Computed example of a mutant assay.
Amino acid sequence: MDLDAFVSAHYGEWERLRSLAGRRALTGAEADELLDLYQRVATHLSILRSAAPDPTVLQYLSTVLAKARTASLRRRTLSWSRAGDFVIRELPAVLYRTRWWWITTAAVNVAAALVIGVWVARNPSVQTSFISPGAAQQLVGHDFRHYYSEYGGTDFAARVWTNNVWVAAISIAFGVLGFPIAYVLWNNVVNVGVQGGIMVSYGHGAEFFGLILPHGILELTAVFIAAGCGLRLFWSWVEPGGRTRADAMAHEGRSLVVVALGLIGVLLVSGAIEAFVTPSGLPTVVRVGIGVLAEIIFLTYVFVLGRRAVREGYTGDVTAQDLSAVRPVAG
């Protein structure tokens, strides 16, 4: 083989491939051209290795092909701008888009807990069906208050955060089935309602609300969000609309990943409040005020940034450039 003639004939293609591989962004036509040139230059390298193994030319082609391979498989890496998009746009967008699901979930559960609490508080016989009189005295006189100061602040915060993240994860992971979420929520409602009813019936209602509200407002909001979004996933295959069930579930499932990641931070805040504010010596009005302030900040975040993000086209799903081709839908 005449090496000089071969190089002269194909050098333009090699340089074109090197040029495309060095660009930060390619059009669709350029991406297709890069892949086509990559295959041809790889063939050229194979021919030269067999017929005219010149070290300089082989090294040059190997370098060009390596750069082209990296360019064709290039992935976007996590950056501060991407992290900012997640916090400012993607998370609030999906929380705002699913707002009626978790608001309804919250309203139903709070109403149910109040009904159970009033029922238990007004009927001593109902209390004894849940807990013995001796255990009720222990709960009122010691256990409920002692629970928040039993462990050191940092250790307790870690325990609370882990437990709450687990509850939220269960609601999200099993959302497609629907019934596990109802079971988790019902257990939570009964637990809060019964304990609150017993504390109120023994004259410790102010203590109950003074200890549960500082952290409980934000904590329960996070749990209701997880449950509401999980139920939205369940409904996506019951009533997928114009999409196929698979596409509807994929869309909601990808959005749930955003919710799950966001709730880790929300529950971290509520866990810190429960560990360091709830058992503190601050006046009750201050402790409850901190919990209310945290809730106001969170809801403002959701409804102000979320509304804006949805108007800009964010849904909490992956962007179009990350989404593979989808099937046409009805409507």
Rank of each mutant, 00 (worst) to 15 (best):
L3A: 02
D4C: 11
S8R: 14
R18M: 04
R18C: 08
R24C: 10
A31T: 14
D32R: 15
L34V: 11
Q39W: 14
I47R: 15
P55S: 07
T56N: 02
T56Q: 15
Q59P: 03
Q59L: 15
Y60R: 15
T63F: 14
R69T: 09
R69M: 10
T77W: 11
T77S: 13
D85R: 12
I88S: 00
L91D: 12
V94I: 00
I103G: 06
G117T: 06
G117L: 09
W119H: 07
A121D: 07
P124K: 11
Q137L: 14
Q138N: 09
R145E: 12
Y151Q: 12
Y151T: 03
G152Q: 08
F156P: 05
A157S: 02
R159Q: 15
V160M: 09
V160R: 03
I170K: 03
I172A: 05
P180E: 10
N191I: 06
Q195A: 04
G196L: 01
I198P: 01
S201P: 01
G203W: 09
H204M: 14
H215K: 00
A222Y: 06
A226R: 00
C229P: 13
R232V: 07
G241Q: 07
G241L: 03
T244H: 09
M249F: 05
R254M: 12
S255E: 15
V258F: 01
L263E: 04
I264E: 04
I264R: 01
G265A: 06
I273S: 04
A275H: 08
V277M: 09
P279S: 11
P283R: 04
I290R: 10
I290Y: 08
L293R: 05
E295H: 06
L299V: 05
F303Y: 12
F303K: 07
F303P: 04
F303D: 10
G306E: 11
D317F: 00
V326H: 13
P328S: 06
